[in-house]
Design a protein around this nucleic acid. Structure first.
Length: 554
RNA sequence: UGGGGAUUAGCCAAGCGGUAAGGCAACGGACUUUGACUCCGUCAUCUCAGGUUCGAAUCCUGAAUCCCCAGCCA
């Protein structure tokens, strides 16, 4: 069992860690999860969170939560709150909570060191000029005319940058590396820019802010991070990361490793796009159940366990990949299978009158809360002359292999009796609006009746005592299948991603608490919506449907 | 066309010179008071072409395809 677990989580970064520990290269594993507080966390972040926390945990190491807040223009405390909440909800506790902005003074001092070593200079090229002189993928760049300023002049200018003597964009601190490098990242990259912007953490203490490429390695070094794990697009920056570490003469020498970020079918996973969906009110906020955000998945009804199991199963590698959303669904079904109470809900009601059941009579029928988990006990549900069944469970003219109700056919009502359909009533438009059936008292559930068998079992609720409820059925927000080269993701938003319908649930669900999860027989797993559900009006989000091998077309 | 990566089944992914794990999906079948669950079964010679070797997904050579880099974003 133990071995199995370890095998399942074996991946190339873990192999590196094992090797480093064995060779003595590192004594302890220290990782970090370094989000920029500029949006909500999504399932892709969850992959990274699980990787960093579980890796350190396995080897008794440490993991820091560090906000990479070096760009005040985009960052906000709302996000630092939500990020902490989401990491904790996933089940992880950080050893330290840090902010990159806590290190600004150190970073500034290291920048001065670079200047003194002749490794950085203050450049006065405009952004446009910098772009023009950077060269292209196939052509080398040109040296900035400010590249060979004296150390004294650079130091003076940099000090004055900090003091606020210059406007945004007027000057910039650049590393002096190599304008001819085939690696664009090494063509004298920017280290510090001027931005007279209030920072969520440091207020107006600074008007110059370090760039990611400069700040990140120093943050890792300061925290003694041993394995700095990031995504593939930073591979090209590894030489710069190492240059910063070397030239800044840090005490610790963290190493950067890159893995492939997660993509899921039928969804978008970029903070920019997710933010757009929120800002343009295409969804109901960052926690809309259609969002792949942690908060969206939580509101939809996913559990931390299911997300962690998913993260483990998809593995960690360097190849770009898009995981089938059905794998995620598999894990929530798996997790809820034994945890969720199994109850009955009718989403699209069709009234059934049981003509031979005495008027005014009713009874309480006993039902298992989870037939696969007897510890969950039993409950009683009311039954009487009028019930609702699912519209889909009756057909006037059934196809072959239709096991449900049709004229003359008998089915079992889950936890109740066999009923046989005798008549159906239509409205003016020809829609079936009511069924007249008869029941057989001898077939009561639990009596062990074996007189005859029926092929189908359908669910139902008592018409008088059932609770009206709202059901929100979700479909993918984005349709991959329609995508073509160059399309905007907005063109592929599924107009039917949310369907709201009104139906009924068993009275036993009265006063269900927010976030409580149920299995509705033959429908799927549902979660009590945390924003809209009240005691007066229950609102359920469908987490995932049950699998079905029934094909209505045949 | 410069540099950095990747390529094992429909989708993920192990494998590290000794004869292709596992999961999801799919498809058969059994069972069934959920057309669910469960159970049983089916499902790859590893991008291609050469080479080395008794033996290659693993090593070498060459090619193809895909991804990333020209922010004062991260």
């Amino acid at each position: 069992m133990e071995t199995e677990t370890k095998l399942a989580s074996s991946h190339f970064i873990r192999n590196i860690v094992v090797g480093d520990l064995k060779s003595g290269k590192v004594k302890e594993v220290i990782t970090r999860f370094p989000p920029e507080p500029n949006g909500y966390l999504h399932i892709g972040h969850a992959k990274s969170i699980c990787l960093n926390f579980e890796l350190a945990d396995e080897f008794n190491g440490k993991t820091n939560l560090r906000f990479d807040d070096t760009n005040p223009l985009k960052e906000d405390t709302e996000y630092v709150q939500s990020i902490q909440e989401d990491v904790r909800w996933l089940g992880f506790e950080w050893d330290n909570l840090f902010f990159a902005s806590d290190y600004f003074e150190y970073m500034y001092e290291r920048a001065e060191l670079l200047i003194r070593k002749g490794k950085a200079y203050v450049c006065e090229l405009t952004a446009d000029q910098m772009r023009e002189t950077r060269g292209t993928l196939t052509q080398p760049g040109k040296n900035s005319p400010y590249r060979d300023r004296s150390v004294e002049e650079n130091l003076d200018l940099f000090t004055r940058m900090r003091k606020g003597e210059f406007k945004d964009g007027e000057k910039i601190l650049r590393a002096k590396i190599d304008m001819n490098s085939p690696n664009m990242n090494l063509r004298d990259p920017a280290l510090y820019r001027i931005s007279h912007t209030t920072h969520h953490n440091t207020g107006d203490a600074w008007c110059i802010y370090p760039m990611y490429a400069y700040a990140h390695p120093l943050e890792d070094a300061l925290e003694g991070v041993t394995h700095s794990i990031c995504t593939l697009e930073f591979e090209d920056q590894r030489p710069l990361y190492e240059w910063i570490i070397n030239e800044c003469e840090t005490e610790h020498e963290p190493k950067q490793y890159e893995f492939a970020r997660l993509n899921l079918t039928n969804t978008v996973m970029s903070k920019r796009m997710l933010k757009q969906l929120v800002d343009e009110h295409i969804v109901d906020g960052w926690d809309d159940p259609r969002m792949p955000t942690i908060s969206g998945l939580r509101r939809k009804g996913f559990t931390p366990e299911s997300i962690r199991a998913f993260a483990k199963e998809i593995g960690v590698s360097k190849s770009n990949s898009t995981v089938d959303e059905r794998l995620l669904e598999h894990f929530i079904r798996e997790d809820l299978k034994l945890k969720a109470q199994r109850t009955m809900a009718v989403l699209k009601p069709l009234k059934v009158v049981i003509t031979n059941y005495p008027e005014g009579q009713s009874e309480q029928l006993e039902a298992e809360n989870n037939s696969e988990n007897p510890e969950m006990g039993n409950r009683f549900i009311p039954f009487s002359r009028e019930i609702y069944i699912e519209q889909d469970d009756f057909m006037e003219v059934p196809p072959s292999k239709y096991f449900r109700l049709f004229p003359g056919n008998e089915v079992r009502l889950k936890n109740a009796y066999f009923i046989k359909c005798n008549e159906f009533i239509k409205d003016a438009e020809g829609n079936v609006i009511e069924l007249h059936c008869t029941y057989d008292p001898e077939t009561k559930s639990g009596t062990g009746f074996t007189g005859r068998k029926v092929k189908g079992t359908i669910h139902w609720v008592d018409a008088k005592l059932a609770l009206p409820a709202e059901f929100r059925l979700y479909e993918p927000l984005i349709m991959d299948a329609e995508k073509e080269e160059g399309d905007s993701f907005l063109e592929h938003i599924n107009p039917n991603s949310l369907e709201i319908i009104e139906g009924f649930v068993e009275p036993t669900l009265k006063e269900s608490e927010a976030q409580h999860k149920f299995q509705f027989f033959r429908h799927g797993y549902f979660n009590v919506d945390s924003k809209n559900s009240t005691d007066q009006r229950l609102v359920f989000n469908r987490i995932v449907s049950l699998k079905s091998s029934f094909d209505a077309r045949s």
